[in-house]
Design a protein around this nucleic acid. Structure first.
Length: 359
DNA sequence: AAAGCGGGGTA
DNA sequence: TACCCAGCTTT
């Protein structure tokens, strides 16, 4: 249980601080639940500056949830291109369809129903409930974990079930019931501007006089995370199979990175041994008797993802004519239409480098 | 409970 | 390089 007098102190200092600062954002003070939801999905694990242009683009192309629901999935993926965590785009589209049909285009003013939408978890449900409907649900995001663990000196790992539960309970107790939206906005602004991950501004912190971590010299040790990142290396060889102005691409459908984005035919190897590709099964699957004539190899390109390091080369190959077999998910497109498809950053970089003069 | 999922900013 | 960001879903 959080001490009542501490809760009062915390709220008051936080709200007073927030009243003094400015942090303009396109969705701040927004009342349309659709736009609030849209901004929250975009901002999941994404810094505000990075998400801002995407919010504007989605708002422009899909002014209403119905417009988004009616859009083709590939179009939504294309607009999301470059933002990462593409399941967000897929869930965004799916949720738009649900709201459009089941809820007649209106987001439910109910925390539990919000939580049931695909892509809406505890944080996002609380954000929509408070910002759109003034309901008393405290947001718990990375900022909140950091602030509460420091001020209260809690070393329970935040990336465990017990940690999530404990911090959620405390956050809910601290919430200002009078104006949940203002409070939620304030605590996230505070985490983003004042109680930042490294070198926080403790000298001018309104909570410094009661901050346990500051008193005990634990600022750099909190919050505690238990799991450490494991990173794996992957080696991709992409084949740009061309004849005239036609090129083969395919949609990624497996449960893997970049699902529902497009790429070129791919051979993945377990190591840097990039030879032997001419004998790959890929050519047989495409109904090609031989690998074709290699015109150029570009790369290696590297991309660092959170959990994977990708090393990729791009081999440009001239075919005499179209492949006789195109497996499911493969398609032939005109070179000038490539820009209509959503590609991972890695491939987008390659395409830009070559400014579409593939040969 | 643990793993998987992007891309970019910062120290 | 390592960590973090207005986290969620699947296994």
């Amino acid at each position: 249980m959080v001490d009542t007098s501490f809760a009062t102190y915390f709220r008051e200092r936080l709200l007073n601080w927030a009243a003094e600062i400015e942090r303009p954002m396109p969705w701040k003070g927004e009342k349309d639940p659709y736009l609030i939801w849209l901004s929250e999905i975009i901002l999941q694990q994404t810094r505000v500056e990075q998400g801002m242009p995407y919010f504007e683009n989605f708002k422009r192309d899909y002014p209403t949830v119905q417009a988004l629901a009616e859009a083709p999935e590939d179009e939504v993926m294309k607009l999301w291109q470059g933002l990462g965590y593409y399941s967000r785009a897929r869930n965004l589209h799916a949720a738009a369809k649900i709201v459009s049909s089941t809820y007649e285009g209106k987001f439910p003013a109910d925390h539990r129903q919000l939580l049931s939408l695909p892509g809406v978890g505890p944080y996002t449900a609380a954000a929509i409930a408070s910002f759109a409907f003034a309901l008393p649900y405290a947001v718990v995001d990375g900022n909140v974990f950091r602030i509460l663990s420091r001020v209260l000196g809690i070393d329970t790992p935040v990336d465990t079930t017990a940690g999530k539960k404990e911090f959620a309970r405390i956050a809910q107790e601290l919430l200002d019931q009078e104006d949940p939206a203002r409070y939620n906005q304030a605590i996230m602004d505070f985490g983003a501007l004042k109680c930042v991950p490294r070198n926080p501004d403790c000298e001018r912190c309104p909570l410094a006089d009661r901050c346990i971590a500051l008193r005990d010299g634990l600022i750099d040790l909190l919050p505690v995370k238990e799991k450490k990142l494991v990173r794996k290396d992957r080696y991709f060889q992409y084949f740009i199979l061309q004849w005239k102005d036609q090129v083969v691409i395919r949609k990624r459908t497996a449960k893997d990175i970049w699902r529902k984005l497009y790429e070129f035919p791919l051979i993945e190897t377990t190591g840097i041994e990039f030879g032997g590709w001419a004998q790959s099964d890929l050519w047989r699957e495409l109904g090609l008797k031989e690998a074709g004539e290699l015109k150029r190899t570009a790369g290696p390109f590297r991309q660092q993802l959170t959990h994977q390091r990708i090393v990729a080369v791009f081999r440009e190959i001239e075919l005499a004519g179209p492949p006789s077999e195109l497996p499911e998910d493969y398609l032939v497109v005109d070179r000038k239409n490539l820009a209509k498809f959503a590609f991972p950053k890695l491939i987008d970089c390659y395409l830009r480098d070559n400014s579409l003069n593939l040969f």
